[in-house]
């Protein structure tokens, strides 16, 4: 099997999408929500709803503490930091392919959606669920738009299989390849190069984040 590799010899001058302001946006949304929460702190009830059943009635609450009330913002901060790290990883440790700029924009859009949804959950909790329906509608529309964009991009992007000999099923292992992220062999997106020592640590970190968030959420109840 032939193994042809192609690359540009020009410098990689690509920057993260959106520029500095675009990158700061999700964090500004979270910070503005934190200030809004602080301004309304004395008016909040003793228990804040954080989960609603399918009829829109609250069925889980957190106590009126800083950790409990700001839990959606902490969750949003964790998600935004994770997605910022993903963008930096794609920019500096993934090969320059046609998929990379699309993927960077997609992750940034996901970061905005995550920040919006977390701020929305806080707003719904503080307003006793009055903002729940608009939040669900807008978050659902945003998710649908992201999914549609992903499908369109996946169809537009030419398929590239990196080093066919390095694939072990779904896993890519090439110790000579300095990339941390490589395009998936099937489907759209990236996977780790497990020949890179960072990949194992990143996988553990990615698994640890949702576990820690779940633990945090349960302990705050």
């Amino acid at each position: 099997m032939s193994d042809i590799r192609e690359a540009s010899v020009e410098r990689d001058t690509a920057r993260l999408p959106g520029g500095a302001l675009g990158q700061v946006g999700p964090f500004l949304m979270l910070a503005a929500s934190a200030l809004w929460l602080r301004a309304r702190w004395d008016d909040l009830p003793a228990r804040l709803p954080v989960h609603w059943n399918w009829r829109g009635e609250p069925d889980r609450f957190v106590s009126h503490t800083a950790a409990g009330a700001a839990m959606p913002l902490f969750l949003g901060l964790g998600l935004c930091l994770l997605m910022l790290a993903m963008q930096l990883g794609l920019r500096h440790a993934a090969p320059r392919t046609a998929m990379r700029p699309f993927s960077l924009r997609l992750v940034l859009a996901g970061e905005y959606l995550a920040a919006f949804a977390c701020c929305g959950v806080l707003a719904a909790a503080v307003t006793a669920g009055r903002l729940l329906v608009p939040l669900l509608v807008l978050s659902g529309a945003g998710t649908a738009a992201l999914l549609a964009s992903t499908i369109v991009m996946a169809r537009k992007t030419p398929r590239e299989v990196r080093n066919p000999a390095a694939w072990r099923g779904l896993f890519y292992v090439d110790r000579d390849d300095p990339a941390l992220f490589v395009p998936k062999r099937r489907g759209y997106g990236y996977t780790f190069n497990y020949g890179n020592p960072m990949a194992g640590a990143m996988t553990v970190a990615l698994l640890a984040v949702p576990l820690m968030l779940a633990f945090f959420a349960l302990s705050a109840r």
């Binding site: 590799r5 990689d12 993934a94 320059r96 990196r162 090439d174 390849d177 300095p178």
Partner: peptide, 27 residues
């Protein structure tokens, strides 16, 4: 590319790290 003039004097090439990353080769 250099002899044919496709790459002119003063042009900055991809760094070793960038080209190795794109080609999937050791630095």
């Amino acid at each position: 590319a250099l002899v044919s003039g496709q790459l002119r004097p003063g042009a900055q090439l991809a760094s070793v790290r960038e080209l190795a990353l794109d080609l999937g080769l050791n630095h």
